[in-house]
Design a protein around this nucleic acid. Structure first.
Lengths: 208, 208
DNA sequence: TGGCAATGTGAGTAATCGCTCGCATTCTAG
DNA sequence: CTAGAATGCGAGCGATTACTCACATTGCCA
């Protein structure tokens, strides 16, 4: 689709002040991206918002795309860490508890910054990271499938891989759509309840 | 987020040749948008691809955004017509049949042009139509909720509105993710089977 | 056939914006 | 304290692209 651009940093910040500069730049990038999209994300606007000079910006980021790539990387790392921690936490919990926890955490994750999530995903065809996303996503599916496989005796599941795919897609979509389009549902306990109901009934476990 | 741009046509094609011109322009727009994204969608590139002059393009479209807006409109109209036809078709069918039909049609819809679907949705913050999308989406939710409400006696559903939200989000996400990320699943009968299983178990009806 | 409406053309303009580079300032270690 | 590394600055350049406008061609109807 797109020719890939280099997003490797030119220089890495060593001093405190330069680390703060980079943080300011990335913070400004996120704010502008959410508010104005990629079109409104001019490097001069970022530098202005961050309170640094345009030359400083280019010290640490080789081009505009690299700004966005850095945000994407951070977000993927964060999400990956959270997912693994959550899965580790519920690995041996009873299914109803595990299901509820995963759903709750997924909703919380999207509720935190729905617009930023959305707009960053949209930049992927432009700045890269599709392979990383696919890899992390596959990783999550494998973990979920492994959990389903290990406890297949207690579940009404035919194919753990397919079940993992269907469930992950559904839970993520419910969380994302609520966050983006129906934020009032985020504070309605029924959102988690109904999502749990759907999952537990599908798995054939009673809704603890 | 964005300042809205005018996307009203400057002139409407009357003769066959001008209608063909407009079709060529929109066809080229779709192809370039899918292949290169909005960045690569220059009006000169569209005119080249369509085999028309840049001046002709501006005869019918006041600006670049209007090209994309026209594609979005078409897609929304198409999807809306399909959804309503499908819902009318299954309104009185037994639930297992109705569920299977809706899932199959949703998957087929996304399977037809997954990349174009994705990239058009992403242009909405840029060219408008969010209100229209929300309206159509609400319409679909209301229709589904009405069906669930009308047959609540036979379903294990607590709140038809919430159930409609959860189901529509899930089915659409499964279809979209399969189409975009795991196209091999599109030809696997288990995809429809498992999705049907999830829905019918959630609704508390037997999986005809 | 002729006149007017419909349609098509594309060179060129003005604005925007990504990015550079020469210079200035601050920090750190010997 | 000094020298060199680290960091910051911003005017300005060159490339790109959305769009115009004066002119040309085709279609249709009386």
């Amino acid at each position: 689709m797109y020719r890939q651009v280099k997003t490797t940093p030119r220089k890495r910040p060593r001093q405190t002040r330069s680390k703060e500069t980079v943080e300011s730049i990335l913070g400004a990038t996120a704010r502008i991206l959410v508010k104005h999209g990629f079109d409104g994300l001019t490097t001069n606007a970022v530098a202005d918002q961050a309170g640094v000079s345009i030359g400083s910006l280019y010290q640490y980021f080789p081009n505009k795309q690299a700004l966005v790539a850095a945000l994407i990387e951070r977000r993927l790392d964060d999400k990956n860490a959270r997912t693994h921690a959550a899965l580790a936490e519920v690995a041996s919990a009873p299914f109803p508890v595990a299901v509820r926890t995963m759903i709750r955490l997924t909703i919380e994750n999207y509720a935190a910054a729905p617009e930023l999530s959305r707009v960053l995903i949209e930049q992927v065809p432009r700045v890269g990271r599709m392979a990383r996303i696919a890899e992390l996503h596959q990783g999550t599916l494998k973990l979920v499938a492994a959990v389903l496989q290990a406890r297949k005796q207690e579940l009404a599941v035919r194919d753990p891989d397919m079940a993992a795919f269907v469930l992950v897609a559904s839970i993520e979509a419910i969380a994302q759509r609520a966050a983006l389009f129906q934020p009032q549902r985020l504070s309605d306990p029924a959102l988690i309840e109904e999502t749990c109901t759907m999952v537990t009934r599908y798995l054939g476990v009673s809704d603890g």
